[in-house]
């Protein structure tokens, strides 16, 4: 109710120490807490899901197997046979981001993927890995990619910097995409929730009108479920594409 006539749409992204005095001492905020929750949730899902080890899987086991298959197919189809080596990495990335996005939608929760520091760290991890794999698989030939084949040599001073900038923009676009989508979604949810409170303060007509933003928020929640899955998917598939280029000759 403190919102009054102002909407504090970005306050939800502020970090506060959690877990009382211990969290205060360790500078432990919601963000790492939710990361741990996300990791534990994914691990628990896989462990509990796969524990029956049934030939004909139950529901939870089927879900775990579908998740495994989905990422395995994505990695092998996109990267090729070498994709098997990167499957655990892609799997971890996808489900860490997915769990982060979805946990952030719960009330009193926090979406750690809405912080650019987190998404940049993830994107740089992918970028550095792809560069290392490139250098290992292709050696010095890797640098030949910065000059498009068939282009006149006279254009090299123009084309090479453009290619290098295009290459360097990968981690930026990878991180900004995830971060911006999550922030935008949560800001919209906050805005419409605030509208509801503001309208409810107007009396009887306001009470009736306040239903509108609630309905919109329900729809937005569905949209956020789509966006959360889609962004995790895009992050994972781009990781696969970058790794495919790294292992290709």
């Amino acid at each position: 109710m403190a919102a009054g006539s102002t909407i504090d749409a970005l306050g939800q992204f502020e970090l506060h120490p959690v877990l009382g005095g211990l969290g205060e001492a360790l500078r432990f905020s919601q963000s790492p807490l939710m990361m741990i929750v996300a990791s534990v949730a994914v691990l628990a899902f896989l462990y509990v899901g796969m524990r029956p080890k049934a030939v004909v899987p139950g529901r939870l086991q089927a879900a775990a197997e579908i998740c495994y298959d989905f990422i395995h197919n994505m990695a092998v189809d996109t990267i090729g046979p070498e994709g098997r080596a990167f499957f655990p990495f892609v799997f971890t990335l996808f489900f860490f981001i997915l769990a982060g996005n979805y946990l952030g939608l719960l009330p009193f929760s926090f979406a750690f993927t809405s912080h650019v520091a987190v998404t940049v760290a993830l994107a740089l991890m992918v970028f550095v890995l792809s560069v290392i794999v490139s250098l290992k698989a292709q050696g010095a030939k890797f640098f030949a990619h910065f000059m498009p084949a068939g282009a006149p040599v006279a254009l090299a001073p123009l084309l090479v910097p453009i290619e290098i900038l295009s290459f360097l923009s990968r981690p930026v676009s990878l991180s900004i995409r995830l971060f911006a989508n999550m922030v935008a979604g949560h800001v919209m949810l906050e805005m419409f929730a605030a509208f509801t409170i503001m309208l409810a303060g107007l009396g009887l007509i306001g009470d009736a009108l306040a239903v509108g933003p609630v309905v919109i928020n329900v729809a937005l929640m569905a949209l956020e479920l789509l966006v959360g899955a889609l962004q995790a998917y895009v992050f994972a598939i781009l990781t696969c594409i970058y790794l495919r280029e790294a292992v290709a000759h």
Binding site: L165, S169, I176, L230, Y233
Partner: peptide, 22 residues
């Protein structure tokens, strides 16, 4: 289907990212 949606969402950021890095 999902690739198309992903492509549309990617296009904007790709452009901004190139400019931002530059």
């Amino acid at each position: 289907d999902i690739t198309t949606v992903g492509t549309v969402l990617r296009a904007g950021t790709e452009m901004v990212a190139g400019l931002a890095v530059g």
